[in-house]
Design a protein around this nucleic acid. Sequence first.
DNA 1: CATTTTTAAACAAACGCTTGACTAATCACA
DNA 2: TGTGATTAGTCAAGCGTTTGTTTAAAAATG
Lengths: 333, 333
Amino acid sequence: MAVTLKDIAEKVGVTESTVSRVLNGIPKASKETRKEIFQVAADLGYKPNQIARSLVTKKTHTIGLIISDLANTYFARVASGIENIASKYDYSLIISTTGGQEKEELKYINLLKEKQVDGLLFASGRMPFSCKKLLRETEIPTVVVAREVDEDLPSVHINNVKESYRAVKYLINNGHQKIAMISGNADDKESGLYRIQGYKQALNDNKLEVREELIVEGDFKLQSGIKAVEEILKRDSSITAVFAASDEMGVGAIKAIKKAGLKVPNDISVIGFDNNIISLASDPELATISQPEEELGWRSMEMLYKVIKGEELEEKKIYLPCELKKRGSVRKI
Amino acid sequence: MAVTLKDIAEKVGVTESTVSRVLNGIPKASKETRKEIFQVAADLGYKPNQIARSLVTKKTHTIGLIISDLANTYFARVASGIENIASKYDYSLIISTTGGQEKEELKYINLLKEKQVDGLLFASGRMPFSCKKLLRETEIPTVVVAREVDEDLPSVHINNVKESYRAVKYLINNGHQKIAMISGNADDKESGLYRIQGYKQALNDNKLEVREELIVEGDFKLQSGIKAVEEILKRDSSITAVFAASDEMGVGAIKAIKKAGLKVPNDISVIGFDNNIISLASDPELATISQPEEELGWRSMEMLYKVIKGEELEEKKIYLPCELKKRGSVRKI
DNA sequence: CATTTTTAAACAAACGCTTGACTAATCACA
DNA sequence: TGTGATTAGTCAAGCGTTTGTTTAAAAATG
């Protein structure tokens, strides 16, 4: 049996409340009893039962993270950033993965509520109406990570339209005019739709024609990048640049271009998105937009902490800047 | 205020115990009251307080994962595998990262004990004596992941000596005799020392000389692979193959070899370890030993589940097989 | 119809801790 | 020396559940 306050109390000859207060550093005891209590607690190897404590304090010092997929480096790094700050503030992290499925998201919001988490970080899926509604009902302090959300929920993310625009602008500045895009699924607003929007805007603003047939959809994975480029080259082999909505697809693009007997960047330039380590492994190294995943994580946790503590947020929606990484896969023409 | 059993009980006009039993599916109530209880519970949006429940049942349906680093793809994938199975069994996962630091490990074992987790998965560091001792004292069901451990703790891992041997043997079978190694730090027994051992054994068994100056230590990261190869080539530029203890270092090796004006695999063959996605991004693609990270994760969770349920384990130490991935970075000479 | 069995529910204690209210003894000070 | 503060505690309730025991009523049995 685990040792409890009662055990200590009996051994020292005081009541549980006294022991509790002493152990919590409330100065309502004589030097001697304090000393003895600490002594006995140590001897017995007392470890407070946080469950019991939580029941009365109504704080669990635990926050829930609802996230798409841990095996995905992007999310893993976000999670890592979150965990670091959570631990700094003495919060534990319960991680639940959803695969971006609405059903799972709802399930975990409920579960985490039942587990009485002090706060929730939401980094999954498209946040459908059902989730927002449930979140509102459950009244758990929540911060949304890496997702824009119309609600008044606080959030921290990057501006995908703008950053995507920047990547394409960089290609244009290097003299490229026929630029294809490997997109993600547009159902995913953030990394799908918004990046397409940025691409289109950049072309428009520079009087370049947007040709829908040069936008091929992938699934963010390497293989789909290969497939996409094969398709693009079939449609128009005179393109001089490709913008991929993820580094994996960008690397796939490079591989496919080479396989087609063309050279990167001599014949076709490629730029990716994320700054995944994979971008440095390819040959040539893939130019890309570097996302601050870990910062995304820790900023959201810092934010959540403030919300939990009832502090006022100076900004409710934080946009973190990305960085353009110029690398060998892009050349001036 | 959250709605409790009491609220439902009052509204229906029965006692809390009746409501509790009904909601838990214990058939001790009339059809009508049951129906009414369910109805009222739904109307009020009742969600059981798992903290209160845990206090009495002494089960939290939560398991703790102590892991080195979530930002590291290897561990992230292990964690992902764990989470999938945990969720299948309705267990939540509290994840704590340690950076492999003994102090952090001890801190989290204690913390998780206080949080009354039902079980512990340990995938961090070298598991020093202090940890083993604490684990024994706390008496939480524990499974060790990806670490060999002398104790009688159950564990699931790969056989690093054997798999490393296999990689080197593959090079030897391809006619290579002068094989350098980029190792990890030997303090890390599993992926450091053991892989060096496998390398040496393979050489010995094939009557090849082990030359210590051809073993250069890296830190598993890409950059260190580059550095290591530069050093190796300085020491002996007539080597024909390199075995890297990680894919990142392997890719770094390929980059450095190319930079030195040599060709992979024409001049030097390279093989890595892990089958990280990065191995497919490099040119040529990196041959490697594929580790079953996700399986490592889910097997350990399956194992822990059995321990928690008090079932007998048919094997206490599980070794998972790896797979040799033959790719363009190795050629026959 | 009396007695036993079954059913439907109430009662009460317990899980381990925190915390507000109360008490008795000691101390300080005018 | 009497009054008020302070100190060092105790007492008891409560957090939201579960669960063993008891009770009252209904149903079944002989």
